[in-house]
Design a protein around this nucleic acid. Structure first.
Lengths: 179, 179
DNA sequence: ATATTTACTTAGCAATGCTAACGATCTAGG
DNA sequence: CCTAGATCGTTAGCATTGCTAAGTAAATAT
């Protein structure tokens, strides 16, 4: 196998019909940058987007695959983590996970069938369903937590300080970007 | 799995599901300190892994959703990009994308049915199937490229220079991590 | 010459997202 | 009070995309 050179990436023809790679430092909104001023390489927007897309999709595939070995699915895990601090409605959970309501209903159904959450009513609005975590659910969450991040944590542990910090910053940026 | 400290959890932070255990201690040996001065904050392995996982999964969901609007699926896109420089076997493509052979067969089938790739034999080993890109395929790739990274590129373009560099570095790290 | 391995395909399953359509409930307007 | 519309959750059905198991054809080893 050897070369793991990512797919796509800056291919030869690179006609980059996209946004002009020229734009050097727009520094528009968003700027929160509590960082230092690191590297100084100019990275074109399109190539960066391409490599980032590949990296993210590939990593997510790995994460999903690794997580699948557990008893709790990724979606279930997120929901459990979300309601650990307190009950939430199905709608809130769906919005939080950025999925549609029916998808969340299914996740809650599965969790409920497994006894990890319970449905409760909101006396002020009986249309809503408040999803509570059960003891069993909280226990499952804790048990799953280490397993869930095990693969990633293992690799992260092998990184240098700077690399870890870079990933941390990147996570913050991604979170904001996809929100 | 190095660390496994579930801790008591329930940290009442707000937006982050999955607040990691409060064991930032380990920090291993790691430090190789290449060049530049490191960063500011020591980030625990588990919390970092957790936030990274969430960020990646969420972003990948968005990417997949956005990409779905196009004519070419993410998997198809990657394959086209991969064979743009030259034909590859089904096995090579599968390994490259880190999926199983049958999954790649299906992708190639779809592409072939759409006339974007063609199957060729390897005279030296007739078991293999060399997947070539067609003119139509190359054109489709170029057309798709801008669309495909449009969502991401749009957001990337709004970032500061440093943020972009951070993402670039992160992409490289992720690529290596999941290889 | 047969047995094993390798490369790809076929068939069928599972997870996870979506939209459409529906019942129940809340909120306004008359 | 009572009907009209909006909102919340659910049910039903579909699409995508990954997997494993098992089969076929070709190369390789005994």
């Amino acid at each position: 196998m050897t070369q793991t050179s990512p797919s796509s990436a800056t291919s030869p023809s690179s006609t980059t019909p996209d946004p002009g790679p020229g734009a050097p430092a727009p520094a528009k909104a968003v700027a929160r940058t509590p960082n230092k001023a690191p590297a100084g390489k100019p990275v074109g927007v399109a190539p960066l987007a391409a490599e980032l897309r590949v990296a993210i999709m590939r990593t997510s595939r790995r994460l999903r695959a690794e997580a699948a070995t557990g008893v709790i699915s990724p979606g279930q895990y997120s929901v459990l983590a979300a309601i650990l601090r307190g009950p939430q409605t199905v709608g809130q959970l769906a919005a939080r996970e950025q999925i549609q309501a029916p998808s969340m209903t299914r996740i809650v159904n599965d969790l409920s069938a497994a006894g990890l959450v319970s449905r409760g009513e909101n006396p002020l609005d009986k249309r809503q369903v408040l999803v509570h975590i059960t003891e069993s659910g909280a226990a499952a969450l804790l048990r799953a937590r280490s397993k869930r991040t095990a693969w990633l944590a293992k690799r992260v542990a092998d990184l240098t300080f700077e690399q870890r910090d870079t990933l941390h910053q990147a996570a913050l940026i991604l979170q904001e970007m996809s929100s």
